[in-house]
Design a protein around this nucleic acid. Structure first.
Length: 493
RNA sequence: GCCCCCAUCGUCUAGUGGCCUAGGACACCGCCCUUUCAAGGCGGCGGCGGGGAUUCGAAUUCCCCUGGGGGCACCA
């Protein structure tokens, strides 16, 4: 066990702003955040925008929004600053230039004047011969005069790191153990592009050191980059942080999770009615486990129980069905008031926008008790309750059922009678009266209620009928039943 | 092609040589409950990729194979 100053844990989530916050990125962020919070450490958000072509301002907003929605707050980073800022790499150009100059001065790095075309050619040639391409370091020993001539000619140059040609670089990884890479295979890689913009591996190494990062938790895809970053740090004479490379998240076909597998960004899950607790819980369990038995963890419990030691090394398939179940579980266990608030936030972006609580219409809070146990997503609320707010639209199957039921008109008249007279107009009283009526008529309750259900909602599936009639109100319930009796059954009986 | 990672039910996983006739969760299949649908309860189906080696004993250790994935850029 390495010496670790627990209170000094500093982790970072370092997304490149080239798209939405992918659930894979969200999981990486979550694990970093959990480690920081569980250790009383610091969670840093750093934007790696050195890819000028693909980075966008909009992507930064989306990532920031996504993290905030998930509840993963950062202690240092964009929007809030911090003692190690700025937190966008493009704003840290001075630092990289300074470090590059230092390496140049120490002869740990050198300028290379090879053109991109020459290198491409060499690369494809190597590939043809079936050999691995490794930069041959031809610019390593340029003498001052030659360099002066090149510069005179206006040739562009990049800065390369002088890398070891023997030995191995070993990554001590907290999830994979020791992983060894042969130095020869690496080649002198580029630190600074001819444009002056640092490459990823250089910027990351410089920043992880400069920001005092103690644990780098990131995706498995970065494992092969790690020896390069270690070389940069070694050249700068710095001690590297500890590393933990998380296995990838796969789609059901075991290919890396992508759009064609369905929703992949936290934004999409949010729009489709998922709650943050479920997404965090699910993501936490995708690669980490506590005891193999417990599956539901509140954020507090995750913070309390999370540890890198229990992060697995196997790539995991993203199971939407399980996430959906978990989402339903969280919705069911929520305080009704809390659920009402979530719906309050969610509904404005649906076709129910502005409807609940309006003139004579039920409030969200009135409906929550009727649907809470049926919801798997917040979006389900819309399908389940739209008839309370909108004119009844009959589902084809429901209408067929209703019209083909010869007893329906009679049953509906009995129901209408009860609705018109029952006192008080409460679900309990309605239930008592209807149960009795069913018994008196010697029909099963379900048979009695189904026509009512369809008449009042147009659907085969609704919340409990007594509660529904109660919330809908005496007038409206009657109106709907009468309407069916007079219009739909016109000429039938 | 080269380098690296990974391998337990369909899926997420527990399991660190004997407690394993392999445990839990989701899914699936029955049954119960029931005004529809869910939810819930009970029960069931289902797995250590293959081959060697070590050992009294291997899901657990080692090697090979196979399979999956990642990386080999003036992308991150």
């Amino acid at each position: 066990m390495e010496r670790t100053d627990k209170a000094g844990v500093r982790v970072r989530f370092a997304p490149s702003p080239t798209g939405h916050l992918h659930v894979g990125g969200a999981r990486t962020a979550l694990y970093n955040w959990l480690l920081a919070r569980s250790q009383g450490g610091t969670f840093v958000l750093r934007i790696e925008d050195t890819d000028l072509e693909r980075s966008t301002e909009q992507a930064i907003d989306q990532i920031v929004d996504g993290l905030q929605w998930l509840g993963l707050d950062w202690d240092e980073g964009p929007r809030i600053g911090g003692p190690h800022g700025p937190y966008r790499q493009m704003e840290r150009a001075g630092l990289y230039a300074e470090k590059a100059d230092g390496l140049l001065a120490d002869r740990k790095a050198y300028r290379c004047y090879c053109s991109a075309e020459d290198l491409d050619a060499a690369r494809s040639q190597a590939r043809e011969k079936g050999e691995p391409y490794i930069y041959d370091g031809r610019c390593q020993r340029l003498d001052g005069d030659t360099e002066a001539v090149f510069r005179e000619e206006g040739r562009q140059s990049v800065i390369r790191l002088r890398t070891p040609t023997t030995g191995n670089t070993v990554v001590k990884d907290l999830v994979h153990g020791e992983v060894s890479f042969e130095n020869v295979l690496c080649g002198d890689f580029i630190l600074v592009r001819s444009s002056g913009v640092p490459t990823y591996n250089f910027a990351v190494a410089v920043d992880d050191i400069a920001m005092g990062i103690t644990h780098v938790i990131r995706g498995d895809d970065h494992l092969p980059n790690t020896p390069k970053q270690l070389m940069v740090m070694a050249a700068m004479g710095e001690e590297p942080p500890q590393y933990a490379h998380l296995p990838l998240i796969l789609g059901t076909d075991r290919a890396p999770l992508s759009k064609r597998h369905g929703d992949v960004s936290v934004e999409e899950f949010r729009e489709h009615g998922y709650v943050r607790e479920a997404l965090c819980n699910y993501l936490a369990l995708l690669g980490w486990s506590f005891d193999g038995e417990t599956t539901l963890f509140s954020m507090e419990e995750l913070v309390e129980k999370f540890s890198l030691e229990r992060v697995g090394s196997t790539a995991a398939v993203f199971d939407r069905v399980k996430l959906l179940w978990m989402n339903g579980s969280y919705i069911r266990d929520m305080e009704p008031i809390e659920l009402a608030e979530r719906l309050e936030e969610f509904l404005p972006s649906t076709r129910l926008a502005g409807l609940p609580g309006g003139e004579g219409r039920p409030e969200i809070a009135d409906l929550v008790p009727l649907v809470q146990e049926k919801l798997k997503t917040l979006a389900d609320f819309v399908e389940l309750t739209d008839f309370f707010f909108l004119p009844v639209e009959f589902e084809e199957k429901a209408l067929d059922k209703l019209l083909s039921n010869g007893e329906a008109p009679a049953l509906l008249r009995v129901a209408a009678g009860i609705i018109a007279e029952v006192e008080p107009y409460s679900s309990e009283a309605i239930e008592a009266a209807m149960r009795k009526a069913a018994e008196d008529m010697q029909v099963k309750l379900g048979k009695f209620l189904q026509p009512v259900r369809i008449a009042v909602s147009g659907k085969m599936v609704t919340p409990g009928m007594f509660e529904t009639l109660s919330v809908l109100g005496r007038e409206e319930s009657l109106r709907r039943i009468e309407h069916v009796l007079s219009k739909q059954f016109k000429g039938h009986s």
